[in-house]
Amino acid sequence: MHTISFVSASGGAGKTLFSILTAGALAIRGKKVLLIDMDPSASATLYLLDKYVEDCNLQTLLKNLVDYKLGRAARRADVNDCLARHRVAGAEASSFDLLPGGNLSDIQSEVFQVSGWNRLMADLVAPIESGYDYVIVDSPNWLFPLFPMTVSLSSLYVVMTRPGKSEIEKTKVFLQRVFAIMDRQFGIAQPQIYALVVLNQIRQNAQPDEVEREGKAAYDGLSREFPGIKFAYSDKKAKYYGEKKESAFWGFKYYEDLRLDSYKQNGHVLASSKVREEKPKLQFRAYLELFTKFVEETAVYERLVE
């Protein structure tokens, strides 16, 4: 079982989209997948279920676990009771489970009353995680006070970022914060080796040489700051970014087929016949190969649950 959190320094970088698309792609491959919506906005839940779930979600389950830990509840709630099944859009024979999100901000003061509160999410999911090949986490914003619970839950991270100097600088600050949490709160040595950076939303009209420049700038900027960090790059050449020239894979251009609304309307980029452009499919296949290799080859640290 592998647990991977999708994180980003700023909104709109593709964190929720790629957590959904990755969960769907793995399900299409026959893997058992759980997607956990940890974002307080619960946007993944809204997109996948077309509604918010009020009575049985991550908030209600965590509130129950807090009450149990503090002696205010006689038993723990069963996480299975809150799981929803999502059929992959455009590939309805494939599906994955969703743990619906809720507004954790409403209970954070109670969470902080529990000793070792930053391990509560790992404790919550522990009874069910062995039933899955992959657990994908749509993480909360890194400034969210409960973000450290993501670290105890996940062993690996997909870092979504966009090209450009200002965005890369934001990502540096963000990763410094996350790696400090991993080191100081959980004693994880060399935390940068557990992160895979994915470059997203490169200009749609960028030529292959321009894409390469953007990719190298992002890679060089982050790898200098964090030696050993992984980057979603492949030197296996193909016509990822244009019809005339083959190039290495550096990340994703901005495409209509790589949006949440498109997933709902047209289906998964790898599966739906409504997705007619070959470039986003080609790019996503390259990413998925790199993602799978990263997960399978990275020897993860041992997660501790109190």
Rank of each mutant, 00 (worst) to 15 (best):
L70I: 03
L34Q: 00
V114T: 11
E54L: 14
N80K: 14
S19A: 14
V173W: 10
L61M: 11
F249Y: 14
L46T: 07
Q185S: 15
E277C: 06
N103S: 12
M149D: 02
L65F: 11
A206N: 06
L46V: 15
F112E: 03
R72V: 11
S272A: 10
V79H: 03
V111K: 01
W117P: 05
A299I: 13
I107H: 11
F249V: 06
L156Y: 07
L258S: 04
N80I: 13
A91Q: 02
Q185Y: 09
L62E: 00
Y52M: 05
C82N: 02
A89M: 14
F144V: 05
K230V: 06
A248I: 09
S139H: 06
A232I: 01
K236T: 09
D183W: 06
L156K: 12
P148T: 01
A299S: 15
I128N: 03
G116T: 00
G14D: 08
C82T: 04
Q59S: 11
K216Y: 13
I188R: 02
P148W: 03
E277S: 13
D209N: 13
S130H: 09
S8G: 06
M1G: 14
N118F: 04
V159A: 07
V269K: 04
T150E: 00
P148C: 03
A238H: 12
D67T: 04
V159H: 12
A195T: 06
Y241C: 00
T150G: 02
E278W: 01
L65T: 01
A89D: 13
D235G: 10
Y241E: 09
E296L: 15
L61K: 02
F6S: 01
Y233A: 05
E243I: 12
A27R: 08
V53M: 05
V135Y: 04
L46D: 11
A73F: 05
A13I: 07
A126T: 08
Q185M: 13
L304Y: 10
F18G: 00
G221S: 15
D81I: 13
R29A: 13
Q185F: 03
T22R: 06
R85V: 12
D97I: 06
E212I: 01
E110T: 14
V197G: 10
G131F: 10
A44P: 09
L21V: 10
V79D: 10
L34I: 01
D39K: 00
K170L: 15
D133S: 07
Q283T: 07
N118A: 03
V125W: 00
Y52E: 04
N266D: 15
L146M: 07
E214N: 10
L196Q: 07
M149V: 04
I229C: 04
L120E: 03
P148S: 02
I4Q: 05
V88D: 04
D220K: 00
Q265N: 15
L99F: 06
D220I: 00
H268I: 02
S139E: 05
Y132T: 04
T292N: 13
V305C: 09
K32V: 08
R162W: 11
P163A: 08
D183N: 03
T150Y: 03
V197D: 14
Y194C: 02
S273A: 07
Y68S: 01
A206E: 07
V66C: 00
L156G: 08
H2P: 13
I4G: 04
Y132C: 06
L290K: 08
G90K: 02
G90A: 01
K165P: 12
L260A: 12
L199N: 00
L70G: 02
V295H: 08
D183G: 03
